[in-house]
Simulated scan of single mutants.
Amino acid sequence: MSRYAVDGYFFTQQVSGIQRYAIELLAELDKLLDPGELELVVPPDTHTPDYANITVVPYENAVLAGRGTSWEQQDFPRYLAKSGRRWLCLCNVIPLWSSGSEGIAVLHDVCYKARPDFFTDLRGRMSAAWHCTQYNAIAAKAKRIVTVSEFSKSEIMRYYHVAPDRITVIYNAWQHMERVFPDPMVFGEHTKWPRLKPGEYYFSMSNLMKNKNFPWVLRAAQRKPEAVFAIAGGGSLTEEAEALGLDHLPNVVYLGYVTDGEAKTLMKHCKAFVFPTLYEGFGIPPLEAIACGAPRVMVSDTPCMREIYGEHADYIDLKTNDGNVDDFTPGRDAAAVLQRYSWAESARRMLTLLREDTL
């Protein structure tokens, strides 16, 4: 049986969907592993959970110590060479210069390759160049590639000609939201957002990545001035709205970054959770919204969203719908979709890969 070491740099990063996947998989894997079977290698002074069976290894090479990309590309592969372990990389990045073609990589999506039109400024082009370098390396070096949907698997095969038997689909899940306590102050006397009333607002979580399609939500607010649209995300969303000429909409409430507890309350009490994405490998926010009790989720009508949410979401046809939340294909029984996804089952599938004799 092969022994693996996890690139744990993601524990130093802000948690988004990619980091969430890594954190939750390891938490469930820890319940299944033998003691010492898997190591988690992290930069010194990195805070990690207390595991029962995963061994946490703070590591820094005294000569070539670094942080960020340099740690992942210098320190981590040096530890691999020293320990003789193979790499398990959960967040789209592998050590480019590790010896041999050995390891398992999770490649969540290939958006930077599939949609270069999303990354047209200098920063975007530089980011795309780095990620596409990683995609190429993963396709060439990984013994096994894990991805998060059949759609993403088909994209990896399409753009990088990887044989289908090298790619395993291991889905995201939602059970982490059960540990989140809803914030009772969202609608309390001293709320930060007095305009929000339970059941009377559309809720969206966005950022400036073009695939999130933030302008669509603004156009929806423009078309439906009698409804309130609450948008969570970074403060620069207001600057983007200004650049689009849509900063004047009085029915849009910018929430800024919200805590998990605030998000859970906002999801539960919204009129609908709106997710008009243009491209995703999985798309976890609507699943989280359903888990929190959102009465409806409205998602874009794309192959990935159809795969993940089936008949249990309301679908927006972005080819014909430019901001109309009343024009959609209705879904049925949104909560039923939760039965399809489990971190525990995803961890069991990952454990099977870790223990394969052929690797």
Score class of each variant (00 low, 15 high):
Glu72Cys: 09
Lys264Arg: 08
Asn92Thr: 03
Gly84Pro: 02
Asp34Trp: 08
Leu196Arg: 09
Pro194Gln: 09
Leu287Gly: 00
Ala52Tyr: 14
Ile145Met: 04
Asp30Ala: 00
Ala263Trp: 01
Leu25Trp: 00
Asp322Cys: 11
Leu80Ile: 12
Glu262Arg: 06
Pro164Gly: 08
Arg179Thr: 10
Glu242Lys: 14
Gly233Ile: 08
Thr168His: 13
Met305His: 09
His269Cys: 05
Ala65Val: 05
Gly36Arg: 01
Pro58Lys: 13
Val41Gln: 12
Val56Arg: 08
Arg296Met: 00
Tyr59Met: 13
Thr329Glu: 13
Val162Ile: 11
Thr277Leu: 07
Thr277Cys: 13
Asn211Arg: 10
Ser300Met: 01
Arg125Pro: 06
Gly256Cys: 04
Phe214Asp: 01
Leu266Tyr: 01
Thr358His: 14
Thr48His: 14
Asn92Leu: 05
Trp174Gln: 06
Pro164Asn: 13
Val297Ile: 01
Arg123Glu: 14
Asp322Val: 11
Arg355Pro: 05
Leu218Gln: 01
Arg349Pro: 09
Ala142Met: 00
Gly84Asp: 04
Glu200Pro: 03
Met267Pro: 03
Glu307Cys: 08
Trp130Met: 11
Ser346Met: 01
Arg86Glu: 07
Gly199Gln: 03
Ala243Asn: 14
Trp130Phe: 14
Gly100Lys: 07
Met1Arg: 03
Ile54Tyr: 14
His269Met: 03
Leu90Arg: 05
Val337Glu: 07
Arg195Tyr: 06
Leu64Asn: 09
Ala313Pro: 06
Leu249Ser: 12
Val252Ala: 13
Ile170Phe: 12
Asp322Thr: 13
Met305Phe: 06
Ala347Val: 04
Arg219Ile: 02
Lys210Glu: 08
Gly124Asn: 04
Val325Ile: 11
Val253Phe: 10
Pro58Arg: 12
Ser70Lys: 08
Ile145Ala: 07
Ser99Gln: 10
Glu72Tyr: 07
Ser152Leu: 12
Met177Gln: 13
Asp357Met: 10
Val146Ser: 11
Thr329Asp: 12
Val186Ile: 06
Val258Cys: 14
Met126Lys: 14
Met185Tyr: 13
Val110Glu: 00
Ala232Glu: 02
Val63Leu: 02
Ser2Arg: 15
Pro44Leu: 07
Val63Trp: 03
Pro330His: 14
Asp314Asn: 07
Asp7Asn: 13
Asp109Leu: 07
Arg306Met: 08
Ala139Ile: 05
Gly310Val: 05
His176Cys: 07
Tyr51Arg: 14
Gly261Asn: 08
Ile308Ala: 02
Leu38Ile: 06
Asp109Met: 09
Cys292Phe: 02
Val56Ala: 12
Thr12Trp: 05
Ala81Asn: 02
Pro182Leu: 11
Glu280Asp: 09
Ala344Gly: 04
Lys210Thr: 09
Leu353His: 13
Tyr202Trp: 12
Ser16Tyr: 10
Glu280His: 06
Asp45His: 15
Gly235Val: 08
Leu32Gly: 01
Tyr254Cys: 10
Ala114Ser: 00
Leu88Asn: 03
Leu107Ile: 12
Val169Ser: 10
Arg349Lys: 15
Gly283Val: 11
Gln74Gly: 07
Tyr21Ile: 05
Ile284Gly: 05
Met205Asp: 00
Val297Asn: 00
Ile316Ser: 04
Val148Asp: 06
Pro250Ile: 06
Phe119Pro: 00
Asn53His: 15
Ala344Cys: 05
Trp193Arg: 06
Phe181Arg: 12
